[in-house]
Design a protein around this nucleic acid. Structure first.
Lengths: 236, 236
DNA sequence: CCTCAGCGTACCGGATCGCTAAAGAATTTC
DNA sequence: GAAATTCTTTAGCGATCCGGTACGCTGAGG
């Protein structure tokens, strides 16, 4: 599987520092997006997925702490590292209280920043799948063999899965009984982290329902969750 | 929810600081064990389980960095926070490289230390299990599964939650027994610049009461707080 | 007694989804 | 390497279903 780059949002108004940091993170193999003020940061966070945010405290208009607080409200899992010029601990405490996951004061050692970023980003990236390792999965009258990319559906008919179909199916089954958002799907199967409106996913679901559901109008297994994504239910 | 105390190993040779820190961590509800040199630390770690280690760099015999490196070999998941008198960044970098999860230089602000400790300890705990992340929350006769956006209410009826409903519900439950202001709700659920008429929130609360309350006129769980917002009460 | 916050029903608009058809890529076959 | 086949994406449109708004009612607080 092709490696999916981890993405960082860099919120820093000083262009010089922006460039330096961007360069370094890109050399480390991260995908870097930039924002130059708080409002822009909060907006882009709503639209795109990031694995980490680096946030300067001193920003025009809205200060970094406020931005941090705001982002954490809607994305509590998203790690945030705050950069600050002030070296007073009261400020650091405030930052950490408002939800920051780490705090570094300028001037900082570049290597230290890289280390802390690596730590934060990989800590939250420890997710494993389980179920489909045994490359055969059965639900209802359907049997799916992920190794062979083949399955036998409820009518006893044999169906050959395509690569993408298999990936999506596996994703849904790995997260069975949980809603998988469209964003997650696009990230996992398509490798995007910008989300255009697209009907593509629907088409795949459509196929799954044709393959595996008795009544594709009233799905028992492949549920839509309006505004979010889809859910595979094992046990109706 | 009978929680077991989280345990900290405090490795520090200076008795004065030992006492101060021990006192503070115990007040925070942690179980504190002490070690006064590196060898003792490494030994006790083999025998007992800890949720976090606080490690002074300057130790008799074996220095803290080496101890850290050693412990991480056998317990890679165990979070370690290093304390150091030196404020040179090369030293910090070395510590982080050798596996430390955080690094603080003396003199440090006590509150900052407590905050960082809390963060570290709960970050690692959250992966295994946390209230609403462990995707099932129960109150009264109601069971809510946040990953599936589904719940079973007191009448045994199954209810599918919508996206917004789930977001608001999670917000309230995350802040259970605290008043959540309308402001906060709007920020968290509707985003920082999209404010609908405030009446909208009421409608959602209304639904929750229909779903989960026995008598929606006399709510046990979803309380209005006049002029402020709403409060979810776990224990009526 | 008046006001304002919250409750509850009803309704409407538009975002989102389902599904067909067809174009565009990718892969295989000859 | 062209043709054929299969796979994936895009386009489009009707149907659906939130969820936001309107409006009247109730009741607490002053």
């Amino acid at each position: 599987m092709e490696e999916k780059k981890l993405s960082i949002l860099l919120v820093e108004d000083e262009e010089n520092l922006q460039d330096v940091l961007r360069l370094n993170f890109e050399m480390e193999g991260y995908e870097v997006s930039s924002a130059y003020d708080g409002a822009a940061a909060m907006e882009i966070v709503q639209r795109e997925h990031f694995d980490l945010i680096i946030l300067d405290v001193m920003l025009p208009e809205i200060d970094g702490i406020t931005v941090c607080e705001n982002i954490k409200l809607s994305n509590p899992e998203l790690p945030i590292l705050i950069l600050s010029a002030k070296n007073n601990s009261g400020d650091r405490v405030l930052g950490l209280k408002k939800g920051a996951d780490d705090y570094l004061t300028k001037p900082f050692d570049l290597e230290e920043l890289l280390l802390r970023v690596n730590k934060l980003i990989h800590k939250s990236k420890r997710i494993s799948s389980k179920e489909t390792l045994a490359n055969e999965f059965v639900f209802g009258e359907n049997r799916i063999n992920f190794k062979a990319l083949a399955c036998i559906n409820n009518k006893g008919k044999e169906i050959a899965l395509t690569k993408k179909e298999a990936m999506l199916l596996k994703l849904l089954i790995d997260n069975k009984n949980e809603v998988v958002t469209r964003e997650k799907i696009l990230q996992a199967v398509w490798g995007y982290n910008v989300y255009p409106t697209t009907r593509t996913i629907d088409n795949f679901i459509l196929n799954f329902r044709k393959y595996f559901e008795e009544d594709s109008r009233n799905p028992k297994y492949f549920h839509s969750v309006r505004g979010l994504g889809y859910k595979f239910s094992d046990t109706p």
